[in-house]
């Protein structure tokens, strides 16, 4: 696939946004979008982990799994690498950046189970990206995810006291807001075409 990393980066933010186009990372997207500061913290952590794991998983896939014919083990290997990476990052941040750890600490364990992280690694393999594209894709997906969750948190804070129909509070209205956001993002889809 001949596509510059910059195009991949822009596409993963706007036209192929992880949440709004691929539905990945929804669980934490709905659970942690009640406040802007928490959403921003989680977004930063996800971006960091996504960039790191997409590169690591790319390297392991192409230099370990493919040469040894172990491609069918990729699910297990990716999951373990993601979990290990998150653990490592948590230990490093705790040791050297205690302030940042106070800020992001509670979000890091959540990320291990974030579908977006695993999904990005799988997409990287399916779309046959090269190393730079994989890095750009991981970083762009993280930025796109952060943008979506911060925007949603902003909207949810605004409507906190709005009178909603019975039964629509919580998940229901959040999904409908997300739908409207996805609708707006479809406006970008003419710019770049991926796949």
């Amino acid at each position: 696939m001949e596509m510059s990393p910059f195009i991949v980066f822009m596409a993963s933010i706007f036209t192929n946004n992880m949440i709004l186009a691929n539905f990945l990372g929804m669980c934490s997207f709905i659970a942690v979008s009640k406040e802007k500061s928490a959403a921003w913290g989680l977004g930063q952590a996800v971006t960091f982990v996504l960039t790191g794991t997409s590169v690591i998983n790319y390297l392991v896939y192409h230099y370990v799994l493919v040469p040894y014919g172990l491609v069918y083990l990729r699910f297990i290997v990716f999951i373990i690498l993601i979990a290990a990476f998150v653990q490592l990052v948590e230990m490093i941040i705790e040791r050297y950046f205690p302030v940042l750890h106070l800020h992001l600490g509670i979000f890091l364990p959540l990320i291990t189970v974030n579908c977006a992280v695993f999904g990005v690694s799988l997409f990287t393999v399916i779309r046959q990206y090269n190393l730079f594209q994989a890095a750009a894709f991981g970083f762009g997906s993280g930025v796109g995810w952060t943008m979506a969750i911060v925007a949603l948190a902003g909207i949810r804070q605004k409507i906190k006291n709005a009178p909603l129909p019975k039964g629509l509070e919580g998940a229901g209205i959040t999904l409908i807001i997300t739908g409207i956001m996805a609708l707006a993002f479809i406006g970008f889809s003419g710019i770049i075409h991926v796949q």
């Binding site: 709004l20 186009a21 691929n22 539905f23 129909p165 039964g167 629509l168 998940a171 229901g172 209205i173 959040t174 999904l175 409908i176 997300t178 739908g179 409207i180 996805a182 609708l183 479809i186």
Partner: peptide, 15 residues
């Protein structure tokens, strides 16, 4: 398209 899925699930949860 993706928005349709969000709308349908949101409305289903409401119902």
């Amino acid at each position: 398209m993706p928005p349709g899925a969000f709308f349908v699930l949101g409305l289903l949860i409401w119902a």
